[in-house]
Design a protein around this nucleic acid. Structure first.
Lengths: 188, 188, 188, 188
DNA sequence: GATGAATGAGTCTTCATTCAT
DNA sequence: CATGAATGAAGACTCATTCAT
């Protein structure tokens, strides 16, 4: 993981991996069928961490009943910061995403888990009459991808935007999208 | 461009490029310093098309004064569909984006142009008191990236979400984020 | 043997052999010094079967005294069909024959046994005045190799020649070579 | 060819071939798609030489009309000695023959040419009433393989049989097989 | 005696780039 | 200005064999 994280996939040789692991090249192939298989395994683990974070954060019981807004804000905050671990691996994630179907499948499997959790939460909120949207599925998709990409760009790139400002802005966007306006009092 | 579009960057050899161009391999190097330079040039052109589309669409004079919402919707629609050209090239875009700084710089230069245009438009709308947001810069950033990624995923990936539904949903999200609620009448 | 027979020597790994044998790789090396040693042992056994068949068939006491021709025909038939067992192993035989001296020695040892038996039979027939040839040694050599190769090719290759026709033809050839013409009556 | 001839196919590395050819490894791949392709090309050439020899020797116009025996003897002699060129290559021939179908196909194509020539000659001789056999096709097959194998063994192996004796014996066998006995005079 | 994880030398093949013609 | 043959470094992967447990 360290190798890939630091240098990227194509730039890491199997020899380096073995050396860093303190084993022989052949032994690498005792544990993984392929160089690609190593990446796939790592990826699953890495993305899963992010996914777990989000799914846990979506637990409605932890949301204050009268105002879901702080929870949303908190969740966005969480996602943004969860991206900090192994940024190099996430870099590889996007590098391979559209290129390698098997790889995309692995990533999407986890994304689906996250989006499923989002949908469940939205459904529940909707049942409580707290939502102003209809197409919950697509909403979850758009929200998920937006957060995913903004946070990725901030962590992996060098865009001159502060993380906090982005969290605030993204949270605002999602809140206004999902929830009816409070009777009075404009935000911000 | 056809080579890269169809097979990807690493998967295309300079020999193929030369053959398809009807010239000799050596001649490729008369026009470009590098295989990478070819990509860079192509990318500038490709992304520019998308950028031009957006910038043109942001021309306020073409917006109806009393309700900016249809314009937003139209713009989102435009962006989503503009992604259809040379999808393979855009695939390479994301493949190299976090990997190659020079490459990212080229892409970001254009993104900045787009975001600048968004900011200008938002500033103007704000001056007219039509906006409910304060941090126009960050808003432009978040909106831009959201649309960018959702449309990329839909065009390049195989997510089971209809393009139209995504356009609708994304538009709703942006509108509610930017503009004060109309006095009455729920959307959708 | 099954491994080698089905896949060939180079194509079979020691790991496969061990697995198929239900033992550990290391244990293979307890019984054989080498991968090559396994092959050598198998080969000795396999070729021996063919050799035994021929040697038994050459037992003069089983030949009708007045006409050796049916016996020859029968013997050729036998050899041709004896090649059917473990064709993969025989394939390896020819694959290694000219390549590996130790291996060739093992094979030739058996061939010598067969050729010795042929020579003995011919000597006996000659003593009885039934043979028209002088150089019995070379005759045995040429006959043996001819039958060996024709039958190998038919069994291991895909030559469009019927086995029965080949047996007939080869038998005719050998008979006319060895035995004086019957006073009258042409064969075939 | 020198590399393969001296060391064998598997034992020769592409690096060695390149070095011996005085070019770079990559250049080898400019001329041949594969290591195997090199062998295939060489093989075709080598076997073709032998084939040409035989086909030329089978030209009936060069046969004395009244007695075909000397011609046969001469031909066998020719084949046996034609095997002397690049014995290493012929060694590889048998090593790959049953193993590599594409390879076998190439070899058999040439064998068919030879056997075709043999059949033509036999047909002609038969028309002239000089032959005692009926199944010309199978006869050609058996004769061809016999000579092929005996000569290969003598040249490539270390069998303790003199080449001249083998030529004599093989010639006798073929003659007696093909031609009616001369009225009087026993051979040898 | 059996095990099977570990070894690491060895090979083929690719391809961006150059430069003599 | 174009050509395209030549380059050769680089890298993924295999597998017979060993030996500590």
């Amino acid at each position: 993981m360290a190798c890939f994280d630091e240098k990227g996939f194509d730039e890491t040789t199997t020899a380096e991996i073995a050396k860093r692991a303190g084993i022989a090249v052949g032994s690498v192939y005792d544990y993984f069928h392929d160089k690609r298989a190593i990446l796939l395994e790592i990826l699953r683990g890495t993305v899963e961490v992010v996914a777990d974070t989000v799914v846990a954060g979506l637990d409605l019981s932890r949301w204050e009943d009268d105002d879901p807004r702080p929870a949303v804000r908190n969740l966005v905050h969480l996602v943004f910061h969860s991206r900090d671990v192994n940024p190099g691996i996430q870099r590889i994630l996007w590098e391979r995403f559209f290129k390698d179907p098997e790889f995309r499948a692995a990533t999407e499997a986890i994304e689906h888990r996250v989006m499923g959790a989002i949908v469940a939460t939205l459904d529940e909120l909707k049942a409580r009459g707290r939502l102003r949207i209809d197409d919950v599925e697509t909403a979850a998709y758009v929200i998920h991808l937006s957060i995913e990409w903004v946070s990725s760009r901030l962590v992996l790139g060098d865009d001159p935007v502060s993380l906090d400002a982005a969290v605030d802005t993204a949270s605002d966007m999602i809140e206004r999208f999902l929830f009816p306006e409070p009777d009075s009092g404009e935000r911000r």
